[in-house]
Design a binder for these strands. Structure first.
Length: 495
RNA sequence: GCCCCCAUCGUCUAGUGGCCUAGGAUAUCGCGUUCUCAGCGCGAAGACCGGGGUUCGAGUCCCCGUGGGGGUACCA
């Protein structure tokens, strides 16, 4: 029998990382086993569900590269089936009508010290008798339907927790159909999972205590019980369930923060699972090949954004410039103020004297320079800034203090000498490096004494990619312009 | 309250009775490479929640406690 798994998000919000991880484990299992992943939108909570949320979730899946094989199905399309099954249970005597008022029932249960209100509901139903119940129902008296849970225990063999057993007395005579005729979640899920012939239910362990109820429902309905696997939840840094107050929890937030989908998938896979060896940076194919439910952790995991950032940095360094370019371009447009007018090509920021014929596209060279030292696309955008603006916007205060302020007059002279050397030298890394180092020797100073002030003059910052690479990327004309501007700035500061 | 799950470095984890003076990764710190930053290389520091058992031997099995999490709805 081939594996059929499902991912059933509620469209009551965006796709959050916990959901994404559950989706990923299902996807991994499906792909690993050559099975099928079914996407089902559980939209029965009409109040909170919306099409916009459904789209957001689908977008999140698409971004992560998690494709599904069947669906999306909508749970709301199955309500007639759910209702019919509830009624069938009633007809078979496996469920009963509950005419009581829920609030009153709770109060009475509390007053009498009865653990479960449903035992009262059952008492009342039994006292009422089947005939009277039918009469009332026929008269249109509103009532819910409850499953009659027999004594005994309910067990299943969980893929991650092993043998699980619950005492039925600790379970409710759960409502399966509300007084308004709408089916309750546990019934809808069981019905849909059976309808969609789901063989493995892989979900968060917050569903652990729903499972015995669902097993009871499968049995009552005479449906095959799937295999269950309850994966641990994802926690915030404080050890509490991950939620909005921890900051970014939506998958889209991470896309926006410049995380690559492959990195996110890799990171999520490692949250509660490991391949059994010491690999960490793994491609999708490697993840699929290595995945197995029996290496899923039982303990919940803290979502560590630092490690995500590290992993993302690993991916950035390995991703070709051509793939990063569109992401960087979009991000540049999102900066405030935009570093690049949205929709514009990055190539238009290239210096006029860039020799594309020998060095290839300027924007690709830029990305290759930036990507090894950035952990996110957002960082790349920030580091790209000095290469995009017409001139240096402002000189970092701290950098000025360190590299210029001590002896502005001397710095000015040195910049001037660099400027005159660079006017004539061939514009490639080796020649530039030679020119600068030769000058340093002639001046009798370490190369750093030239390089640091030069970096500040060209980028406005104390740190950047290697200075000679920066020079190459800036081109001669811009370099000379910026040097002149820097000298002017220095002259104003210390005439 | 009741039911359930969980418990190894700050974090993600390896570990399925002797291979553990507990391994890796990240984060932190130091050194090196070097024009800065990042990276990379090397190194340091850092954990078996507590108590009882079982056993020749326990991080590994059992019990209790403690802590954390989930559930307890005519929510999903």
């Amino acid at each position: 029998m081939s594996v059929r798994v499902r991912f059933p998000p509620s469209p009551t919000g965006y796709l959050h990382v916990g959901g994404a991880r559950t989706a990923l484990f299902n996807w991994l299992l499906a792909r690993r086993s050559g099975g099928v992943l079914v996407l089902r939108i559980e939209d029965t909570d009409r109040e909170r569900s919306s099409d916009a949320h459904t789209r957001a979730i689908l977008d999140g899946m698409a971004w992560l590269g998690l494709d599904w094989d069947e669906g999306p199905f909508f749970q709301s399309d199955g309500v007639e089936r759910h209702r019919a099954q509830a009624l069938r249970l009633l007809a078979e005597g496996k469920a009963y009508r509950d005419f009581s008022d829920p609030a009153a029932l709770r109060e009475e249960a509390a007053a009498r010290g009865v653990g479960h209100p449903s035992v009262l509901a059952r008492e009342k139903a039994d006292a009422l008798g089947a005939e009277e119940a039918e009469a009332r129902a026929a008269a249109g008296v509103p009532h819910a339907l409850r499953l009659r849970v027999a004594d005994g225990t309910t067990s299943w063999n969980d893929l991650v927790h092993g043998e699980m057993t619950f005492r039925n007395e600790d379970l409710d005579d759960l409502v399966i159909l509300r007084a308004d005729g709408s089916p309750i979640y546990n019934l809808a899920v069981v019905s849909d999972d059976a309808e969609q012939r789901i063989t493995h239910v892989i979900r968060g362990d917050d569903h652990l205590s729903n499972t015995p109820k669902q097993v009871l429902l499968y049995r009552a309905l005479g449906l095959p019980v799937p295999v269950f696997g309850h994966v641990p939840m994802i926690l915030g840094p404080d050890g509490k369930r991950l939620s909005k107050r921890h900051g970014a929890t939506a998958v889209g937030d991470y896309a926006h923060a410049g995380i690559l989908p492959d990195a996110m998938v890799n990171f999520l896979a490692l949250l509660g699972w490991n391949p059994g060896d010491e690999r960490e940076v793994m491609t999708r194919a490697e993840l699929v090949a290595a995945f197995s439910m029996d290496r899923v952790q039982r303990k919940s995991a803290v979502f560590d954004t630092e490690k995500l950032a590290w992993l993302n940095g690993q991916y950035l360094a390995r991703t070709p410039a051509s793939e990063l370019l569109p992401l960087l371009r979009r991000r540049l447009g999102e900066e405030d103020p935009p570093l690049l007018p949205p929709g514009t090509d990055l190539a238009r920021s290239a210096p006029a004297d860039w020799p594309a014929e020998t060095r290839g596209p300027w924007e690709a060279a830029l990305v290759d320079l930036l990507k090894p030292r950035a952990r996110t696309v957002v960082e790349m955008a920030r580091q790209a800034e000095p290469f995009l603006s017409a001139g240096v916007r402002d000189y970092e205060e701290e950098a000025v203090a360190r590299h210029w302020a001590r002896d502005p007059a001397a710095v000015r002279v040195r910049l001037e000498r660099i400027e005159s050397r660079l006017g004539a030298v061939a514009w490639d890394e080796a020649a530039l490096e030679d020119a600068v180092r030769t000058l340093a020797e002639e001046e009798g100073v370490g190369a750093g004494k030239l390089i640091h002030p030069l970096r500040l003059a060209l980028t406005g910052r104390a740190s950047s990619p290697g200075i000679f690479e920066v020079l190459v990327l800036l081109g001669r004309a811009r370099t000379l312009e910026r040097l002149a501007a820097a000298r002017k700035h220095l002259a104003r500061a210390a005439p």
